[in-house]
Design a protein around this nucleic acid. Structure first.
Lengths: 208, 208
DNA sequence: CGCACCATACCGACTAGTTGGTATGTTGTC
DNA sequence: GACAACATACCAACTAGTCGGTATGGTGCG
């Protein structure tokens, strides 16, 4: 009601454009001119708000964290009474989000960190914060689910939370290679099955 | 004995250099001049053997398939009598291969496809063939393990084989973000646990 | 009010250097 | 001497980043 989409300034137009263009073409292949054209601003505006292309990369990763953070924070999977259902609900939401073209459902920071992890420490760190911060939002529910079922396994809640992110990131790579979301969905199904098996106290093999 | 390392020509020196440099800096950020310098050849040699940078990208993906194909073909995990042990042995080998720096143990085609999937179809297809071809080498063992245990589950051998690749690719992204192999190893442990749970006929929860 | 003063936001032409690619040799070998 | 395998010199296009300038709006003061 107040503002936001009313009259976005050059900075937020550039950040929004970065999400689209970088996920489509990759960070390196995205030029400053292209970003400016996509955002409808000039190069002067770009370097007024960001002191370099790398600085925009860092800001884009932080912008990504905010947008995705808000999306998952208000998602209904948090309403489940059983913490395991909350974790499974999260994974189900990730599968449901596989809509539209590949550049639209894949992850900005996963894409950027692959290109910059050895060459641009600032971007690598921003991507690391984004991934680890997001994984951390799953930890409390995983720990609660472990307590409920009195598990004290060899693995930690942290490692399982990060594993969910690994499966998602890997699923995105397969989707990019194959040109479609189908295998990504299959991989997320395998992740769901893993979580169910891990936490099932009876663990009867779901046969035939 | 015959040749190979004896007197490598410019072409194979360039392909070997590409494996190192592209995995370190990414495809786009790797320049032709840099590749030539790393290989110890000149630009003339480069464009004598490859008609463009993209053509080298395709050839590098194929070179990667050959090298990794040979590595896994002669690995001892094939000797296990139980097909499930062969699959688990494969995953254990993937964990054991997490040695050296991050650029040394990560995957060339996973890196390249992220940057090129929307812009360079030829490279995307070469990467897809590499990943799917490698996953296919696991399918027969997975199917045999399913038959042995009389499983007829909702998932297919193909999707499980590809899921192992998704976990590995995702583990590489986390390793790049975190700057170390540890979380990658954790994720591979989760994959091993998934396979054990999936195929265990008793499926007693491994507690404590 | 009216006006000087100043900061922020933005513009777009320009530059210095880099990039993929080419054109033209040179050299060894069958 | 013909051809493959390279080397050297070069180019046109593009790239990130710069720089002088403008537009707008707030603030203090007489």
């Amino acid at each position: 009601m107040t503002n936001q989409a009313a009259k976005p300034d050059a900075r937020s137009k550039l950040l929004d454009a970065a999400l689209v263009v970088i996920r489509t073409k990759g960070y390196c292949a995205t030029t400053v001119d292209e970003l400016c054209a996509a955002a409808g601003v000039t190069k002067g505006a770009f370097f007024h708000h960001f002191k370099s292309k790398d600085a925009l990369g860092v800001a884009a990763a932080e912008h990504w964290s905010e947008i995705t953070g808000a999306l998952f924070a208000k998602a209904p999977y948090h309403d489940h009474a059983d913490p395991l259902d909350r974790v499974l609900g999260y994974v189900a939401l990730r599968k449901a989000l596989l809509q539209g073209g590949v550049p639209e459902f894949t992850c900005l920071v996963g894409t950027m960190v692959q290109e910059t992890y050895e060459t641009t420490p600032a971007i690598r760190e921003a991507c690391e914060r984004s991934i680890s911060g997001h994984a951390a939002t799953l930890e409390a529910d995983i720990e609660a689910a472990m307590r409920d079922r009195r598990l004290s396994p060899a693995w930690s809640a942290t490692s399982l939370a990060l594993h969910t992110q690994a499966v998602l990131q890997g699923a995105f790579i397969l989707a990019k290679a194959k040109g479609g979301a189908e295998i990504a969905a299959d991989s997320i199904d395998h992740l769901t099955r893993y979580l169910e098996l891990l936490f099932s106290s009876e663990t009867i093999q779901p046969q035939s």
